[in-house]
Design a protein around this nucleic acid. Structure first.
Lengths: 109, 109
DNA sequence: GAATCCCATAAGCGTATGCTTATAGATTAA
DNA sequence: TTAATCTATAAGCATACGCTTATGGGATTC
């Protein structure tokens, strides 16, 4: 399975601080429309829309139209190419991931 | 603790496919000099050196001079800003799913 | 239907980025 | 010392990227 292109897309989408902040905000809010994201962003509404398109293309967010509002939500599995990459090239971090998983299972079995 | 700049640096360094391939090659080889990395890369030797500098600046590789050769090795902890970021904005989801599972079990045991 | 609101797209601009060739720097070999 | 080898830097160029303002496209409200 050739996953390199997807890794490039995901990492590329997260590379820009402004765009990453938009994504973080969506994750925290659960769901957010463009107006909400624009307030809080340091750029214009069109810029936010462009970032949202980039995130959508990378598979990191999905949209849900509701009247004239468009609600964006994070797409969990969108990060998996990056997680997979880290599980290979993150070397000893692999242990960390494993530990974190077991920790979560212990806390919440 | 304000880690966003380091995340940006790390992700930015890994965003370019060519540069990421250089890093992957270093990880796989354990240690590699510039000539070795240039063979196998699809770009010129100066381009490889420039990528190495970017990786070094991001804290992802370190160098060891040996005569006229310079050996590069991966710097494991350099990835930690990215791992930490994922543990917040990526792992977050696993936790959510775990909670959802327990919730479902409680409702319908 | 007109006005209003929310969001997306278009066009243009400045800058950042990655590449190349040419050259400098550092170290070893003849 | 001179030549040869390995790597880094410099300069220049083409393209990609992120932003802005202006405008278009739907959906609601009056």
């Amino acid at each position: 399975m050739r996953a390199a292109p997807r890794v490039t897309a995901v990492i590329g989408a997260l590379a820009d601080p402004t765009r990453r902040a938009v994504f973080e905000r969506i994750v925290e809010a659960g769901e957010a429309n463009v107006a909400f994201l624009t307030k809080g962003a340091s750029v214009s509404q069109p810029a936010v829309s462009q970032h949202l398109r980039a995130l959508k293309t990378a598979g990191l967010v999905a949209e849900r139209r509701e009247g004239r509002n468009v609600h964006y939500r994070a797409e969990p599995q969108g990060l998996s190419p990056l997680v997979d990459w880290l599980s290979v090239y993150g070397m000893f971090w692999r242990e960390r991931f494993a530990n974190l998983e077991t920790l979560l299972k212990e806390i919440d079995p």
